[in-house]
Design a protein around this nucleic acid. Structure first.
Lengths: 101, 101
DNA sequence: CATTTGTTTCGTATTTTTACGAAATACTAA
DNA sequence: TTAGTATTTCGTAAAAATACGAAACAAATG
């Protein structure tokens, strides 16, 4: 197989991207935390008190999850309210379902 | 939250570990390839002809998947026959199901 | 025994991830 | 305007992931 611009399917890329977002236990923790109730939202500080990592590190993990689309943050100064992005969460769910099917 | 020996739950660690194994499109490709038929097996060389990566790189990806338990390799010289590890595959499936539930 | 074959390991380099504390930001309240 | 609060970005460092080709391996065959 010779090199190609875009080899993997859109679907394979998507599985990999969501999987990467979930590849760190802190991020799994965050998603567990937020998905316990899909309407639940929380502030970065809420989770900071529950996680054994620096606030800045938590912020980077939130950024990763946001980048993957799994969460969204609504600015509500001086807080930022985070919650699940239901569309992406659903897409991820379906993508993994069909992946394991 | 102060530092702790083991903070995350067993389940969170497991989701993260499986997700990490699936966080590269080449590995997703491999799992797609093998899971198209759960009894399907294949040789490293079979996939090498279908993937745009060096054989040694493919070998490392296979090692990652083996480490995560998702596949197993049966030595059948000079070939090594790879196939899904059904137990782990099933566990991963269930773990993701309950994660997204 | 020397070759061939399929595969992995090794040496190496580059990139990415993870992590922290300090500083910056952005808004509110005094 | 100054101080305070919640959070992120920056600078930096260390560790892990990705990738390649060359060399090593292990077994079968000539």
């Amino acid at each position: 197989m010779t090199k190609k611009e875009k080899f993997y399917t859109e679907n394979q890329e998507r599985v990999a991207a969501y999987a990467k977002a979930l590849s760190h236990p802190a991020r799994v923790f965050i998603m567990n935390y937020l998905s316990s109730n899909l309407d639940k939202c929380c502030y970065s500080g809420d989770m900071a008190t529950e996680l054994p990592i620096a606030r800045s590190t938590l912020s980077e993990h939130l950024k990763e999850l946001k980048k993957a689309g799994l969460i969204q943050g609504e600015i509500n100064p001086p807080y930022i309210k985070y919650c699940i992005n239901k569309e992406s969460w659903d897409e991820a769910k379906h993508i993994f379902e069909s992946f394991f099917k």
